[in-house]
């Protein structure tokens, strides 16, 4: 073994972190090389000194640990009460925010407030750029494959809307509406954004009452546009939201059949 090789292993050697054969080779080299032997000895001394300096205690470690343990493991009554108050206030704030975010703007008019409200929230995220497609719309086949592979559903879209305007597919992604895992087809109609949420049959049960009300394709007003929900022939639930007329959205739902 040469000097440079031996020195490369100095710290694993001093740490006893080498295999027996390498330790043997280095030890033999050190016996034959006074320069490396002295270098190893000095480096070892320096390493020990650095370690000792780093380990130097402030003398209060036991007290510091006991203090931390007392707070971490067994909070005193006052601390626990403070924690309970903090948690209660936080829960109230979360509940308030959730209510403001997820309640539909016209809850009284909405027979499916959960679905429409959360779909509208995702639609707004999309518009604001806070959410984007997982697969782009450049390749229509890729979008179809995406839905088939990720949700087990086949999606086929008529290229033209009822008014003759072409549907432009910007992409697709998965998202969650409440507890339901749904597909989202991101579209444009004459430049206006449209989101089509596709709720697989297995997830529809997570919207109790949907089957009773969505057969008639009810319409909703949502911030920045309109919404329409309805069932496809295969039992899938569709929710279309966009900055277009309700008729256009309804046409989209029909086209999805």
């Amino acid at each position: 073994m040469r000097c440079q090789e031996a020195r490369q292993f100095i710290w694993p050697y001093l740490d006893s972190d080498l295999d027996d054969r390498t330790i043997f080779l280095i030890t033999r080299h050190l016996e034959d090389c006074p320069s490396c032997a002295a270098f190893f000895a000095r480096e070892g001394a320096l390493e020990r000194e650095i370690g000792a300096r780093l380990r130097a205690t402030g003398g209060d470690e036991d007290a510091a640990l006991a203090r931390a343990l007392a707070r971490a493991v067994s909070p005193p009554g006052r601390w626990r009460r403070r924690l309970a108050v903090t948690v209660a206030v936080a829960a109230a704030i979360v509940a308030l925010v959730a209510t403001l975010v997820f309640l539909p703007d016209r809850q009284g008019d909405s027979p499916l407030p959960d679905l429409v409200a959360v779909a509208a929230a995702d639609y707004r995220k999309l518009i604001a750029g806070a959410m984007g497609p997982e697969v782009g719309g450049d390749e229509p086949a890729a979008v179809s494959d995406f839905f088939r592979q990720r949700l087990g559903i086949d999606v086929a879209l008529e290229p033209l809307a009822a008014d003759g305007t072409a549907w432009q597919v910007d992409g697709a992604r998965l998202c969650h509406l409440g507890r339901a895992r749904v597909g989202l087809l991101i579209l444009r109609h004459g430049g206006a954004p449209v989101s089509l949420f596709l709720v697989p049959v297995a997830e529809v049960v997570k919207f109790p009452g949907a089957r009773a009300v969505a057969a008639g394709r009810p319409r909703f007003e949502v911030p920045g546009g309109h919404g329409v929900i309805g069932f496809g022939d295969d039992g899938r639930l569709h929710c279309a939201i966009g900055d277009v007329s309700p008729e256009t959205l309804e046409g989209l739902l029909v086209a999805m059949n």
Binding site: R55, T57, E61, D62, A64, A66
Partner: peptide
């Protein structure tokens, strides 16, 4: 307890 110095250090 025996790890006080190490944990705090």
């Amino acid at each position: 307890a025996p790890l006080a110095d190490q944990v705090v250090g």
